[in-house]
Every structure is written in structure tokens, then in C-alpha cells.
Amino acid sequence: MDVPVKKLKVATATLAGCFGCHMSFLDIDERLLELIKLVEFDRSPLTDIKHCGPCDIGIIEGGLCNAENVHVLQEFRLNCKTLIAIGACAINGGLPAQRNHLSLPLILEEVYHAQHGLIDGFIPNDPELPLPLDKVYPIHEVVKVDYFIPGCPPSGDAIWKVLTDLLAGREPELGHNLMHYD
């Protein structure tokens, strides 16, 4: 692969996800060393930078389950030239979206109030807490997403393939072995 002259800036974030896709990202193992020759990380759980500045590539794990998720996603879309949805939750809501056929008040009531064994339970209402959304949404329903890496999680190899394709200026392609929804 040709080494680009200038390092590309990459930001990553987890919204309503389990960090599994980020763990899978780390599964590229020693290829991380090759990657950091080509890219520089901006906002990411790996750097602990809290806000994302102008970036070449943004990678989002997880869907949208609360207002804060939406703000982070919008910050990424504003700042990243290319936005990638990684994993089932970002792509179709995934496991968290399995609450979507139930009403939010019913869920909150059940979890914090009515459930057997709770004494004096109440629904948390601290203003610091981001408000939950009525449903869990895939990210492409809120902003334009340029590329998708399916999988729960996608393998380190799948993530590597998409990143190296993009860095080399190719249209990313997974092929049968790396294409998984599970």
C-alpha cells in the first residue's frame, strides 16, 4: 500500500452499542502499528479526546437510544468527510432496538418502578441524564452514512479491509468471507 503524504484523521465513537465493535477494531492486532503510520486519531475512546474536530473518517458504533447519541452523531457528521457505520446496532438498531415494540413509559415503569423486588423505585429524572428516545434508531435514519461494515461485531479483518480500501482510495468491498450480519 502506498503511504499517504499526510496522515488522515480518524475519529470513532460508541453510541447505543456495547463497545464490541471497538474491541473488534483492536483485533486488527499488530496491524494497528501499520495503521498509526497512516492515520492519527481524533475523538475516540482510544484517545479520550471529548470532541471531534475536522476529520477524514468517522466511525460510529451503536444506534441512537438517547438525545446525547444524536448530538454526538451530528458532531461526527459535521466534522467527518466520510462517515462509516460499524456493526449491527449502528446499521439497524441491533439488540437495543429489541425494545422498540414496547412503549418507553412502559419500559421505564417496569425497570425502575414496578419490577418485583424494587422498594420505593422511581424513574431517574436528573437533568444531567440524556433523555431516552421513543425508539432506538439506526444512524442512517438521522444522518447520511457513507459506508457500512455489518456484523455483530464485524471481524478485525473486515474492519481492516474497509479501512485499507478507503486509505488506498478504493471502493470498500468485503466479499463472501468477511460479509456477516451475525
Binding site: 446499521i91 439497524n92 432496538a97 422498540n100 435514519e141 452514512v145 457500512f148 455489518p150 468491498e173 460479509m179
Partner: peptide, 15 residues
């Protein structure tokens, strides 16, 4: 969907 390289559901989910 793998065969036809469906990378995302594209449309809004009905749930």
C-alpha cells in the same frame, strides 16, 4: 443479501 452485497437496510425500519 450477502450475495447481492446488501450493506445496509437503506430504508427506515418499521419495527
Amino acid at each position: 443479501a450477502y450475495e447481492l452485497e446488501m450493506m445496509s437496510p437503506h430504508f427506515d425500519q418499521f419495527f
